[in-house]
Amino acid sequence: MLAASLALNGLVMGSVLLLFSLGLTLIYGVGRIVNFAHGAFFSLGAMAGIWSANSGLPFWAALFVVPLGVGLLGVALDWLVFARIRDRPMVDSLLLTFGLALLITGVLYELGGRNVQILAIPPALQSVVSLGAIKLPMYRVFLSAVAVALTMALLLFLKNSDWGLRVRAANDNPEMGACLGIDREKLMHSVVGVGAALAAISGVVGAPIFTAYATVGDKILILAFMTVILGGLGSLRGAIVAAYVVGLITVFGEGYFGGQLALMLLFVLVMAMLINWPRGFFGEGRTE
């Protein structure tokens, strides 16, 4: 029974991880930026969830307001900060987002992020679902439903919309994207905005479970990095499979060995995999 329950929780974890990692993958795919500040966006989302609750905003409203706000912040950051280093060597983008992560974390510390806070689950979602002998809190079901729905929506949007076409074109080949007359600046603003919004909504819906504090996003960032490496940097379908693999490994590892050891297990696994398959599950990770 434990195994079945862990498997379900692993899927929940995988769904959240996927939602979070998609933004990371898109920002990497279009802008070739490995966003070390993505975890800080998650923390910001979680903290903003707490602030909304404290100011009397209903949970449902926070689900819209928080990602919108953080998304706009993402657009602003891309416009004001990332745009300055667009043509610089890769090293600069890594350093820049790393510095940004420190900055956002510092701000969150000042805004109450030193203490662990828990976002209350709305009354409507406080029940427990029974699947045979397995009991799963209703909120976890809701959490994965939100994550899966948003992921599907994003994938459909990528597939069918004009924006999606541009993103995919730029993802496949930046020069070609430019050739198709794509305004890379605007596209990148929107991609960073969407990525930040996805990270923030993961943070806010995750806050009743993962809690909220200034560095709550650190662990999920590491898991997401493992995800994108397993899936291959820049590969969307790789990220989808890898998110659930990582989610399951994490939850099973936590169930049987304890949380920190699970992280180590995962790291060893990723290292072992890199020896044989340096380009991820589908062999389509970038190696430039």
Partner: peptide
């Protein structure tokens, strides 16, 4: 042995992860 065979970005990500792993080890 594994790290240095990776391209720049993967190397950077893995070094960060390795740091967090050792950090976690202190608590284990």
């Amino acid at each position: 042995f594994v790290l240095v065979r990776q391209i720049g970005k993967t190397f950077a990500i893995l070094t960060l992860a390795f740091g967090q792993i050792l950090f976690a080890l202190v608590f284990v």
